[in-house]
């Protein structure tokens, strides 16, 4: 599939919008050490927005705006980590299943189906409740539940790529499976992989927030979901307006950003969807 992803995303306004959103959030995350160095400092609790505290302070007296910026950091780290790790597993399982075929393929696909039909959030809640994961373990855990969808796509793509003429030609002059995978199939998988990674990233951000919202998270890590959980306890105070809502909005905006990019990619790769504008 020869798709100029960059151009396709730019040609769709939704895609551009999504990119802008994600870029802004990423900017926030990267700038956190400079813009919000003192997010752990404790002051008066529940102070309303002021010049000093843009969005006021929370129940611990910490600056909410600063915590939000650090929350972006957490979300994007998770997104990035899961996207890479999960896509890696997808490629390894999906690619090898397609290339090796036979019983191995069937076993892999059974595993994919089995993991996909699990209610992954609930399973993660249980595992998280026992293991009390830090950021890295969380990335690994989420990845363990995210890969099957990607693996299925990679497998079917690989199967169809395998039948493409240039791959058949390479096989005809005796290229090894590994060579074909690395030289011919992976490069062509590129666009599909990007799409899978964006989806994985989105799901990872949502999962982290959800788990944190339930309290399954490392208390040392600032997280939008956790902030929302804490704020939910104080809906009788006015604080939710600059505490709960901004956290929720940031989370939503990030998720919408990823969704828009994903939709633009999906359109780019399925010409049937392109006709409508």
């Amino acid at each position: 599939m020869h798709v100029d992803l960059w151009r396709e995303i730019r040609s769709s306004s939704a895609g551009v919008f999504g990119m802008v959103i994600v870029a802004i959030i990423a900017g926030l995350a990267v700038s956190a050490p400079i813009t919000a160095p003192s997010y752990r400092d404790i002051g008066p609790v529940f102070s309303p927005p002021s010049g000093e505290h843009l969005l006021g302070t929370d129940d611990l007296g910490q600056d909410i705006a600063a915590k939000l910026i650090h929350g972006a950091r957490t979300s994007l780290m998770i997104a990035f980590g899961v996207a890479i790790l999960s896509a890696l597993i997808s490629v390894i399982v999906g690619g090898s299943a397609a290339m090796l075929g036979g019983t191995y393929d069937r076993v892999c696909m059974r595993a994919v189906d089995a993991v996909m039909s699990l209610p992954s959030v609930v399973v993660m809640i249980l595992v998280g409740a026992y293991l009390k994961p830090d950021l890295w373990l969380l990335i690994i855990l989420i990845s363990l539940f995210s890969w099957p969808g990607g693996a299925r796509i990679v497998r079917s793509q690989t199967l169809s790529l395998r039948e493409r003429l240039h791959v058949v030609a390479a096989r005809a002059f005796g290229a090894s499976r590994g060579y074909i995978l690395v030289r011919h199939i992976l490069p062509d998988l590129g666009p599909v992989l990007v799409a899978i990674m964006i989806q994985d990233a989105r799901r990872a951000v949502l999962m982290e927030a959800g788990l944190a919202f339930l309290g399954v998270s490392d208390p040392m890590v600032v997280s939008w979901g956790r902030m929302m959980k804490q704020a939910m306890a104080f809906t009788y105070l006015d604080a939710w307006k600059w505490w709960l809502i901004p956290a929720g909005v940031l989370l939503s905006v990030t998720l919408v950003g990823f969704s828009l990019i994903a939709a633009a990619l999906e359109r780019a790769m399925d010409p049937r969807l392109q006709e409508d504008v």
Binding site: L206, G210, F213, M228, L251, S252, S259
Partner: peptide, 11 residues
Amino acid sequence: MMFLGGMPDFF
């Protein structure tokens, strides 16, 4: 719908 689909349910 694209917007709605992007939002986290609990929010």
